[in-house]
Design a binder for these strands. Structure first.
Lengths: 152, 152
DNA sequence: TATGAAATTAAGAAGAG
DNA sequence: CTCTTCTTAATTTCATA
């Protein structure tokens, strides 16, 4: 699928605020409502836009502590990888999980209420998963950027 | 602000799909439309819900490569930190940036189209920022989870 | 531009504590 | 009796063809 300048601007707007009316997008783009409406439908139908979601303020729901946890497995056979992945995906505190190249095998982003909750998470959840070789946790001192909007 | 069970379920639904009608949320929760409508408004007014956004499929916009980059500064005085932060936030490829504890100072998540684009990003953008001591890049082999929904 | 659906608002009714 | 939630309906706004 090809995007023109207008698609790119429109996607930028939708990624920042999906609650404007079609008319408002149309005005910002100097286009007709129908034109913008059909562009949005096309972006949805072709799977460029996957869904619309509400974003929540972590502080307001008492999940303001972010921890980045690096995980190394004891061994790297397929069974171990798959078991770890299956188990880690069950943990609701884990919002991101990437299998990565380099010294560590996985990098996780974890939201918790405080340090004690993180300790509890480590002791009763993460480290009970089989085949973990080692972990290293880095606490987030400041979140400078955390955006869902991808620049094209 | 306090949440009851219904608020928590509603927030879960809104974080997964913000495009249902109030009536559909109400049916799922066995509540009246007005009650759900007012709960949503309250969540918005109190800042629990910060905004509504469209999520985009990275593959469809040619940004399917994810790189986690660890950055260490040459020195840790306030001026160096602030200058680095100001500059790194200008880079549109960077979707996440955290100041962290531990061996490295910052961890970045970067979206690019391919390895060559990452090389270009490193050479012409990231490493031109002053005061960087060292960087280490980990390429994402598989994205297992990347969610905007925070479990309460 | 025209139609229908949905959001929004307001008022009164019903039920719980 | 009061507080909350439900019901209903009127109005407005918007998506959609």
């Amino acid at each position: 699928m090809m995007f023109d300048e207008i698609d790119i601007k429109l996607l930028g707007m939708l990624q920042n605020n999906a609650k404007l009316t079609t008319k408002e997008y149309a005005n910002n783009l100097s286009l007709s409502v129908t034109d913008v409406y059909e562009r949005i439908k096309r972006l949805e139908k072709t799977g460029v836009i996957t869904k619309y979601v509400a974003l929540v303020d972590k502080k307001k729901i008492n999940k303001s502590h972010v921890v980045i946890c690096h995980v190394k497995l004891a061994q790297h056979n397929k069974e171990f990888l798959m078991q770890f992945e299956r188990e880690v995906l069950k943990l609701k505190e884990v919002v991101d999980c990437y299998h990565i190249s380099g010294d560590y095998d996985y990098i996780l982003k974890i939201y918790v209420s405080d340090m004690e909750a993180y300790r509890e998470f480590m002791v009763t959840k993460l480290t009970t998963i089989q085949h973990i070789g080692s972990t290293q946790s880095a606490f987030v001192i400041k979140e400078l950027k955390n955006t869902t909007a991808v620049a094209i």
